[in-house]
Design a binder for these strands. Structure first.
Lengths: 210, 210
DNA sequence: TGATGTGAAGTATTTCACAGCA
DNA sequence: TGCTGTGAAATACTTCACATCA
């Protein structure tokens, strides 16, 4: 089987979300057009994307919703829950810990690290805040697979280096810096200012063209 | 001049951030390789991207940092601050209102809407929470250009329809649904569960291949 | 019959490689 | 000389169109 294109990977969680909704509406089967309309794309794209995962549909019929949910979940590695840590427990880190959407989707936040002595040792939502000094040991102890990096920008790279050295291969980076990590480590940047600036670009274009 | 490719637009805010940092380090000039290293890309990409904006560099030298900041800021429409509204004032909406990074970059949150009578009329951070019933009039009154959509998923499409009908052309969508909007309206989805699932895919691939 | 799966065509994006200019 | 700007090549992705098969 060929490698799955990056853009296809980005759409798989969207398809999964749509399929779960279809299942909740008691649709046993969905075709590529129906899924495309829910996901905001087109039928050919859906078929091509799903074809990278195998021959999952039935010609003349479409895709079995439950079977496709199971298959995509498997591809996304969602069969077991994943152990997640928050590094940097400021305002944003606190919000993320409180967000129920993660555990609902199998992402369990089981460790929190911060440098502030006033926070260390306190417990929030059943999770104890650890010292950043215990980062390496704590990540190993808790068998962390994914780190949510929410430190201030000026220490993000240094903390990321330690996280990577501790063996973590997946980082969701909320700090407004581009992280430099070795091959094999996946970083997804989340930067709302970047998103707003992209929207602003389009607004500027519109008013200019009109 | 040719249209700027979408992927280039996505990188412009990154370049801008790197340039601002370079300026803070008192670098008067930066070359494509230096900017590429800061931005996590390569020199050819930087030159190609910037070439869509015009001939901004000096051969043999590089790019004047301040001039390039000014130019990219202009392209991104950041010369004046932009008026932003939060629609859906739950936990997430509250966090976003409290985030200082927006106003620092010229995005001013000047209106907040919610459906909960307990919240309507209260003031947070100098902004009064308005009833969702006043959505259309409020968006017009405050001359809102960008909406941060943070409603529950099940009403997100309906609210988005009203936001679009009120003339807003840019939406940052935090609801875990794919919004259907007319041509000319730009939506940027922000879904942390999707991001985590993409990371999970790569983790699954790694363990499988190893 | 009707919808999938997929080569092939069409686009978009990235990278190369070097002419051109300060 | 050294770095930008840019056609051209290479690669990646999307869309088309239709053979294929339940």
């Amino acid at each position: 089987m060929d490698r799955v294109p990056e853009q296809t990977i980005n759409r798989l969680p969207i398809y999964l979300r749509c399929l779960v909704q279809a299942a909740s509406l008691n649709m046993p089967v969905i075709n590529s057009l129906g899924l495309a309309q829910m996901a905001g794309t087109n039928a050919a794209q859906v078929r091509k994307d799903l074809s990278y995962l195998g021959e999952l549909g039935t010609r003349g019929i479409g895709y079995d919703v439950e079977a496709l949910i199971a298959h995509i979940s498997g591809e996304l590695g969602l069969t077991a829950s994943r152990r997640v840590a928050i590094v940097g427990f400021g305002r944003l880190g606190g919000s993320l810990l409180g967000y129920s959407g993660f555990s609902e989707r199998g992402f369990d936040i089981v460790a929190v690290f911060d440098a502030d002595p006033a926070k260390i040792g306190t417990s929030v939502g059943g999770v104890r805040v650890r010292s950043i000094d215990e980062l390496e040991s704590g990540l190993a102890e808790e068998a962390i697979e994914i780190v949510l990096l929410t430190t201030p920008a000026d220490v993000a790279q240094a903390v990321a280096d330690r996280v990577v050295a501790a063996g973590v291969c997946a980082i969701l980076n909320f700090a407004p810096v581009t992280l430099d990590v070795p091959d094999g480590v996946k970083v997804r940047p989340v930067d709302l200012s970047v998103e707003l600036q992209v929207l602003s670009f389009h607004l500027a274009r519109m008013t200019q063209e009109a």
